[in-house]
Design a protein around this nucleic acid. Structure first.
Lengths: 229, 229
DNA sequence: TTACTTAGTGTAAAAATTACACACTATATT
DNA sequence: AATATAGTGTGTAATTTTTACACTAAGTAA
């Protein structure tokens, strides 16, 4: 393709805020940088958008390269473009978030050499972040707080089968407040997007809870209508 | 500033969906292109982000250059980056919307030579748009529909002093449905962000309605709480 | 068998939403 | 002066939604 458009020395990248839930805490994926600037600092994983990929494709590729994960619900939420956000030149970055269930089983795939390591860190105790990544993270958290109230994204943080208590726990962590158990159940069930299974929770040393599954078909019908917490 | 980052032949632009309200209809500002590609087509006004301006600054500049307007509520809402969205090269564009009161008094400032003319066209009867601008517009409309339910942005479309009927009219146009007059008034007044004035509407050939003003102070207090239609 | 821990359930009060119709006021017309 | 016209402005009852609140049931571990 011939390039006849005006030219700017700008770079366009994508940064990902990957929220993970391990059953107890909300965490985000950070990498420890191996290169200047901000060598040895923690940063959001991100990369440059390739010339022939769409933004969503690029975000998926980046997520895959960083975690080995595919098929994750991801959405762009804000573009950051302060001319001085990167000390070495103009970098406009588009932020995506993803919600991920953290299972003990999955190891993080080794990340390219610009990172020393990658780690899931609890959001309650984050280190100082490189560049303007704190701002990007803050806006991301704000975004999912807003979104979890209106769209069924909480399920992405949970295993396929989950208990209502686990689901409530996710809502409480994201929204940052306690919810009433009975009212929560009443409401979430009334949306009609949960399918009650014949199975029970296993391996707990107390009464086992009923397992549920998110019913995508029912949700598709509901789509457009707003839910609200 | 030294440029030592990797380089991509990509262009980063901003396109604006300017919604205007003239008291009767919702309109958007379109320009008729004077250059290939899509010569003679209608398109959203947009421009390339300058090297030393932030994204918001750039959007404000572009809005100003196209309309002469300043101090307008604008917000970015989505980045469009399909690799083939522009036939001549990779152009990633960030979409902004603005809400503008159209008064008979203001003429559109002449637009740079890439446009033959600019015009406010009613959204109920839009022509085919250049590039992927239909998609950008669609997403913008969707966005303000969602937002007008939760934030007091409708005021931006109205003159400083307005009647409740005018305000209701804006809501009905944006949401695309009729609202009950009594319930609308009950609700909008209950938010407490309107200030009733001692003035009445003038120049109408029927009973004049009371004028109201949007009270920014009261709104600031309310901020964070969601309102809902 | 007992102690422990979480699951699971109902109801009444309060608040919010909805549906609905007519008299009032200002102007224009005759 | 009387009348037509066009939009303003207002209340209530029924329904739905939200909130606050506490105990019994079930399973496990000792």
């Amino acid at each position: 393709m011939e390039q006849i458009l005006p030219h700017l020395d700008s770079v366009f990248s994508i940064d990902c805020v990957l929220f993970g839930f391990d059953g107890k805490e909300l965490k985000i994926l950070l990498i420890e940088r191996n290169e200047e600037p901000f060598k040895d600092w923690w940063a959001l994983p991100g990369n440059i958008v390739g010339p022939d990929e769409s933004l969503d494709q690029s975000a998926s590729r980046i997520l895959y390269e960083l975690t080995g994960l595919r098929g994750i619900y991801m959405e762009q939420y804000y573009a950051f473009g302060d001319p001085h956000r990167h000390p070495q030149g103009r970098v406009i970055t588009l932020a995506y978030y993803a919600l991920i269930r953290l299972g003990g089983e999955k190891e993080l795939r080794p990340v390219s050499n610009y990172a020393k390591r990658a780690n899931w860190l609890p959001i309650t105790d984050l280190p100082k972040l490189a560049f303007d990544h704190q701002k990007i993270y803050d806006k991301g958290l704000e975004k999912i707080k807003r979104r979890i109230k209106h769209q069924p994204i909480a399920f992405e943080l949970l295993p396929e089968k989950f208990t209502l208590t686990q689901l409530q726990h996710v809502y409480e962590l994201v929204l940052g407040k306690k919810l009433d158990k009975r009212n929560f159940r009443k409401k979430i069930v009334s949306f009609g997007v949960l399918k009650e299974l014949d199975e029970k929770q296993k391996g707990v040393s107390y009464r086992a809870a009923t397992l549920y599954r998110f019913d995508k078909r029912k949700y598709a019908k509901l789509f457009g209508k707003e839910i609200s917490f």
